[in-house]
């Protein structure tokens, strides 16, 4: 289990993340939701070791991950950025082979090459293997970046907006593929997401952030509520539950005071209830 405890991140005196407590269990998909600028990406980057939080700890099992070497961390946690433009030309095969980097000193082994071949096959990317990465479409690029993370062979897979550049079909394809992988290979996936519908459909649990703090945590139907969307996103929405799958229809943006919703007493209460629900799951 991956535990994040008391994590805080500041950028030039501005609090980006505060008091973050998250547990990620094996074999689960956790989505991080929240409006723009709430620190979703920053949180993922902290866990992936790309940036260092000023306070807090995070551990896998009993091992503290903040002291560990970057290369060793890369063997346990992989990160898929929103996009990864390549300044210089590389083939898809080379891009995916980069996922094996934590295990490569100078030369990839036969095992590394075999793994890459299998991953390309698994994600149905065989035909692109010797194509130039920059020539692919947005969806294909995204798949290659995911393939790279899969080749990295880690227990935890962090993805920043995996579906943001994709059309409907590719969105579903990628979410189903990852969901499938998480269930069959006992790994965990953490997504930073904007799409509430996709998040509720594919996540086991959801963390909702508001202004750098955790607003609430729980199962999709506990977190994605009319009330929470109103408070966190400032939007009136209708939610339909169709056989356990939630559909969120945003209606109208509402004007609200520019105060941190977490400090509002009414909301404190609502939030406490959500936490209660989450505990009794």
């Amino acid at each position: 289990m991956l535990k994040v405890h008391g994590l805080e991140f500041k950028y030039k005196d501005r609090d980006i993340l505060k008091k973050i407590e998250i547990e990620i269990k094996k074999g689960e998909i956790l989505s991080i939701l929240g409006p723009n600028g709430t620190g979703k990406t920053t949180l993922l980057k902290c866990i992936a070791g790309i940036i260092k939080p000023q306070k807090g700890s995070f551990s896998i099992g009993s091992k503290n991950m903040l002291d560990i070497k970057r290369n060793d961390l890369a063997k346990r946690i992989s990160y898929v950025p929103q996009s990864s433009p390549s300044k210089f030309p590389i083939t898809v095969f080379e891009a995916v082979l980069m996922g094996r980097s934590p295990y490569i000193m100078w030369r990839p082994s036969e095992k590394d090459l075999k793994i890459v071949v299998n991953v390309l096959k698994f994600l149905k990317l065989e035909e692109f293997a010797s194509k130039n990465f920059e020539q692919l479409s947005g969806g294909e690029k995204q798949k290659v970046l995911i393939a790279r993370a899969v080749a990295q062979d880690t227990e935890y897979l962090l993805m920043d907006e995996p579906t943001s550049n994709l059309d409907l079909k590719h969105q579903l394809e990628i979410m189903e593929m990852i969901s499938n992988m998480v269930k069959t290979q006992n790994v965990s996936a953490v997504f930073a997401m904007h799409d509430l519908n996709l998040a509720s459909r594919f996540s086991d649990r959801i963390v909702m952030l508001s202004k750098g703090e955790i607003f609430c945590t729980g199962k999709p139907e506990q977190v994605i509520t009319v009330e929470n969307i109103k408070i966190v996103y400032g939007v009136n929405a209708t939610i339909k539950n169709n056989n356990g799958v939630l559909y969120v229809f945003p209606d109208k943006q509402i004007n609200r005071q520019n105060s941190n919703p977490i400090n509002n007493p009414n909301i404190k209460k609502a939030q406490a209830e959500v936490f209660c629900d989450a505990k009794t799951e």
């Binding site: 060793d72 961390l73 890369a74 950025p81 210089f88 080379e94 980069m98 934590p102 490569i104 000193m105």
Partner: peptide, 23 residues
């Protein structure tokens, strides 16, 4: 020459390179 592989990763962006274990 020894850092060749790491230089390859740098071309895909600093974030990616770091997530793949490069300082």
């Amino acid at each position: 020459i020894k850092s060749s592989w790491q230089l390859n990763l740098l071309a895909t962006g600093d974030e990616s390179a770091r997530a793949l274990g490069v300082n």
